[in-house]
Amino acid sequence: MKQFGKLGGLIPWIALVVLILIVGSFDTTFLKPATLIGLFADSATLFLMAIGMTAVIYIGSIDLSLQSIAAISSIVLALLIPDYGMLAIPAALLAGVLFGGLSGVVHAVLRLPSFIATLAVGGVVTTAALYLSDQRSIQIDAQPRLDTLSWAIGTMFGVPNEVWVSLVVLAVALVIEQATPFGKAMKAVGCGEAAARVAGIDVRKIKIVVFMIAGLFAALSGVVLAGRLSSGSPIIANEFLLPAIAAVVLGGTSLTGGTGGVLRTLVGTLLIAVVRTGMTFVGVNVLAQQIVFGVILVAAVALSTGRAPKGVMK
C-alpha cells in the first residue's frame, strides 16, 4: 500500500482496533480482556498455518497444500499417540516437513509453478491421509491427550496455552525473518530471483527450505488442532486454506514477494478472527462467511498491487 506512504504498515492495526470497537459496541462483553484472549486462542491454529504461509508468500510463491499437510499430521499424531506417547509429536511434525520438502523440490528443482506444484502435492497428501486414516477420524483418548498435549491445550498464568505456543512460534519466526542470513536470503529471493541468484544465493535451497518450514508450521497447526478436537481426521483443516492466505495478504505481505512478514500476519489473523466473530455474532452461516473472506482476499490483493512490478499479469 505504497500510496499511503509510511502509514501503510499501520492501516491493518488501525482497522483491527476499529473493528474490535464496532463489534464491542454491539456486545460489550466482547471488549473484556478474557474474551479477546479467548479469541486469540481460538485463532491460534489458523495463525500457525498462516505463519507457514507467510514464509512461502514472502518468497513470492504460494502453497495450496498446507491444509492437507495439517490433516495428515493430525492423523499421524492420533495414530502414534497410543503406542509412542510424546514421540508422536515429532513424527507428526516430520511428516509435515517431508511433504513440504516434496512441494519445494517439485517447485524449485522440477521448476513447476508453485500453485500447480502444491495443488498436485496436496492431492498426493490427501490420498496418503485418507489411506492412513482409513477414511475416518481417529479418536485420541482423554488420558494420553492430557499426558502428551497439555502444552497445547491447557492454561498457564490464566492464559490458554494456544496463545503461549503462538507467541513462541511468532518470536522464533520473527528472529529467523529479521536476524538471520537465511531471513535476508528469503527477502532477496522474494524481491527478485534473478538478482538473488547473481548475488550468489542458492535460490533452490532457500525455496526448498522455505517450503519445509511452511510444512512444519502447518503440521504444528494440525497437532494443536488434533489436541483441541481430541482426534485426527483427513478433513480436520478443510476450511483453513482461504483464511490462512487471507490473513497473510490482509496483514500486508505482498503476493509478489519480498515485503511484509510474520508480524503483519499476526494482525491479519486477528482481523480475520474479529471479522469471523462479528459475523457469527450476527448469525452468518459458516459457509456463507466464505463470501466475505473471498471478497476480503481479492480486495486486499488488489489494494497491495500498487507496488507490484509492472509487466504481464497472468
Partner: peptide, 17 residues
Amino acid sequence: KVPSFMASLGMGFVGIG
C-alpha cells in the same frame, strides 16, 4: 490487476458462499 489464480481462488469461495 489481481493475478488470475488469486482472483479465481477468492471468487470461487465467494461462489460457494
